[in-house]
């Protein structure tokens, strides 16, 4: 590697000497861009890696994930998100967390909802119904239209696993029903929860308060709380 480099460097150097003599020492604007063969290799590598990286990450793909309010257009979010994590900082209820590698490389460090520490009330209490994450986003990757409200911005939908739910063991636990501000949960005659699908906006309050898994699980093998919010199309009662 070193031998040929020397051979290339020699003529470049002599050119410069000639030029600088011709220009009597002053900086010449039109001086030739003296790239060596090694420099060109770096250039070619740089171009190949940046383009290849884009293609590879895109081809690897990603799974559907929950997004903070205003991030429901996935293509827009992936294009505009700088991965700066300002929304995570802004969320007063700690409900926004950056994604790891679980759902694909392209979504890494983009925001998702995690209702374990808090729920999303659209910042009604904290900021008069203007979500602070949307306000903080420097590139409007999280962006709400003028007609967007808490009720018509749907983050995700609930998945209720009856077998894991304390109420379905007739314990009369009704925490999710009590906490739901949108009346999206109704109780049947035995105080068991059912979901009102057209009312739910995926705010995660029910998941946040669900006692299953937090106060011991009724079923061995349960992996998460009995009611959780999942991306659109994956919800249900089962």
């Amino acid at each position: 590697m070193r031998q040929p480099k020397d051979q290339i460097m020699e003529p470049v150097a002599s050119n410069n000497v000639e030029e600088s003599i011709n220009n009597t020492g002053s900086a010449s604007v039109l001086q030739k861009n003296g790239l060596t063969r090694r420099d060109l290799l770096w250039c070619a590598g740089g171009a190949a890696v940046t383009l290849g990286l884009g293609a590879a990450i895109k081809a690897f793909g990603s799974e559907d994930v929950l997004r903070p309010p205003g991030g429901q257009n996935e293509d827009r979010l992936l294009a505009l998100c700088l991965r700066c994590q300002k929304c995570t900082e802004a969320c007063p209820r700690h409900a926004i967390v950056p994604l790891g590698t679980e759902s694909g490389f392209i979504t890494m460090r983009t925001p998702t909802m995690d209702y374990h520490l808090g729920d999303c009330d659209y910042c009604v209490e904290e900021n008069d119904g203007i979500p602070l994450c949307v306000a903080a986003c420097p590139t409007e990757a999280l962006h709400l239209g003028e007609e967007a409200t808490r009720n018509n911005t749907v983050i995700g939908e609930p998945l209720l696993i009856k077998n894991w739910c304390l109420a379905y063991r007739l314990t009369r636990c009704r925490d999710c029903y009590d906490v739901c501000k949108l009346d999206a949960i109704r109780l049947d005659s035995a105080d068991r929860p059912h979901i009102e699908w057209d009312k739910c906006n995926g705010c995660g309050e029910c998941e946040h308060v669900c006692r299953s898994m937090t106060a011991g699980t009724p079923v061995p093998g349960a992996t998460h709380r009995a009611i959780i919010i999942v991306p659109m199309g994956q919800g249900g009662e089962m």
Binding site: G54, I57, A79, R83, F105, R109
Partner: peptide, 9 residues
Amino acid sequence: IFGFPVFCL
């Protein structure tokens, strides 16, 4: 081309 800020990742 690929619709996301490649270098930022």
